[in-house]
Design a protein around this nucleic acid. Structure first.
Lengths: 344, 344
DNA sequence: TTGTACGCGTTATCAT
DNA sequence: ATGATAACGCGTACAA
């Protein structure tokens, strides 16, 4: 009932356990094995369907082939897109991904879940702002010397090396697109209070300021990064007086909620209100109307984050303070149009 | 630079390694330790931030605390919802989840990725129909005697024990709702060719037959379970003659695409066409209009699947052929209404 | 109550 | 070219 061991395989073949190991360990084997015995071993191994115990291997080699991926909320469509991309990239490096979600964890449960998740991992990627970020990496680093890389953490929290999309560039693309369409009364809808949300908001203010377009405070709205709550918030804004003719959302999720809000208020998108999102999740190709948005270079971001992590795992150097930023692009669809004539 | 070992901790405290182990192993310890030494050990452990090597523990105990979760496509919002629920439930059992995605893997890469993912796991849950299901579980079982449980596999593929939503009940709820609203020309949109999709389609035919409502073949449409492709398919159907007054979709994803299709064709939902989805993903509360759908009891499904897996991991009995089915419920929102008067 | 010694299943270093 | 043997870090029966 128990699993086979190399010793047993060796006995069946009539060789010692170490010979079996040499054949299977995949090493470039500076020590040669007779082709004939190698074949005999491989045959028996195949017949038995034997495969070496990964845990024992891990103990010997101090390599588990496991990476932690800590994510705030897998149900956020952006993060699930990210998880898919990163998992694929990890597999490309021959690593598997252990999923941790800090979501909805109480303080203690969080700590528990972390050690649980991180146990066997050689390193970890932190996705988005975690609730207890600081506590997390401190423990992870102190106790385990675990290499860490952050993704979508905002670019100015260099507790750990960080890879991110260039939020400023993205927001600039969005605003320039809208201004080019004649919009002047542009509002920003920030979903959640994450580092990236804040950066995008700051960029929003900065870019409008650069363009000499005044922006009253009421045109910057903070809502939860969740469909229903965001919808309610935007709806309230759109019912207000002097409503904007264009909305820039900090995430596609919020932008989709904004489409709903406009619909509820009876405003036509894009005829009366234009909407620009951020992320380019798959959904927004078929919202009504389809969404103009800022596309994150997901593959490139995953690639960079993993490269950074691999290198940290290699030399143990964590390059704290390292910040790597990748520019996004604008994708124009049907949610943006010329500003209403009387409102420019 | 290397990690601490129990031996070193012991030396620092002035006790042997085994004493440290006894204090830390969390066992109900039939062997007692003097409270005073225990405290000394715990203090040093805390000061050093020491934590035992999980791999060594795993080797000794043959328990890694890792479960595999093999999913076809994490980007499918239904599956990401499922992954979140199952991960949470696994944590409740003090297990972590290793994520495998069979998605977009070539034949060989698939096999590779599987063994990669399954390596350290004590068992695995298979989510949805995998491309190479049969090959997969055969290898997993034969080589590793790995306990397996299937979720959303369809209920009639008892290669492995299976937990599922009751597709027939769900479809019946959907149809009865529509028929109660006066609909007679009801179409089914099947997203993908999965076991559940097929079961829902069969149920669709069966229920309509029971109700004595004839259903021409053209009213059963198969489209890919992806936003854009599904949208195109439904759009084509809606442009056809004698179009249905109501659509039942096999997944919410397809239902959302159907909303878009109706909009493209210029049909108003629910005035001219009613739409019912299946799953109740978070998104569908704020689609335009919000979606009437069949809600899957996600928590309960996760709970049952994990309970089954835990028991299989306990006694090694796989209870092949075990099928457990849980009824869903109807959630009425704004995408369904009375059938147009002239079309009943 | 604590320490000694062995084994978990590998890989890698010695001999042979 | 192959076989013994020593780690890897921990849990636990056995001895003291």
């Amino acid at each position: 009932m128990k699993r086979l061991t190399m010793k047993q395989v060796g006995e069946l073949v009539g060789v010692s356990q170490s010979t079996v190991s040499r054949v299977l360990s995949g090493a470039p084997s500076n020590v040669p094995v007779a082709p004939e015995t190698r074949d005999r071993i491989l045959k028996v191994v195949a017949d038995l369907g034997y495969s070496p115990n990964p845990v024992a291997r891990a103990l010997r080699s101090a390599r588990t082939g496991l990476l932690g991926l800590i994510v705030r909320d897998i149900n956020d469509p952006f993060f699930s897109m990210a998880v898919a991309a990163i998992t694929a990239e990890a597999h490309r490096h021959r690593y598997s991904v252990v999923l941790g979600h800090a979501d909805s964890s109480a303080h203690e449960a969080l700590a528990l879940s972390e050690t649980l998740v991180m146990g066997h991992c050689e390193g970890a990627i932190l996705l988005g702002d975690l609730r207890d970020q600081a506590a997390f990496w401190m423990r992870a680093r102190a106790a385990r010397r675990m290499p860490l890389v952050g993704l979508w953490q905002g670019s100015r929290a260099p507790h750990i090396p960080v890879v991110n999309v260039d939020n400023a560039v993205g927001i600039r693309l969005a605003i320039e697109h809208l201004v080019g369409l004649g919009h002047r009364r542009i509002a920003f809808i920030q979903g959640g209070q994450t580092g990236d949300g804040l950066e995008r908001r700051d960029a929003f203010r900065a870019v409008l300021h650069d363009l000499g377009i005044p922006t009253p405070e009421r045109n910057v709205l903070v809502v939860p990064n969740a469909y229903e709550a965001a919808e309610a918030g935007v709806e309230r804004m759109l019912r207000g007086r002097a409503r904007p003719t264009a909305l820039v959302a900090s995430t596609d999720l919020v932008a989709v909620a904004a489409l709903k809000a406009a619909s509820q208020v009876g405003l036509s998108v894009p005829r009366e209100v234009s909407v620009v999102g951020f992320d380019d999740i798959p959904l927004v190709r078929i919202t009504i109307p389809s969404l103009t948005t800022i596309r994150q270079p997901m593959q490139e971001l995953s690639r960079r984050a993993l490269a950074r992590l691999m290198s940290a795992m290699g030399d143990g150097q964590d390059t704290i303070g390292h910040v790597e930023v990748i520019p996004p692009t604008l994708v124009v669809r049907d949610s943006t149009a010329q500003a209403p004539a009387d409102n420019r």
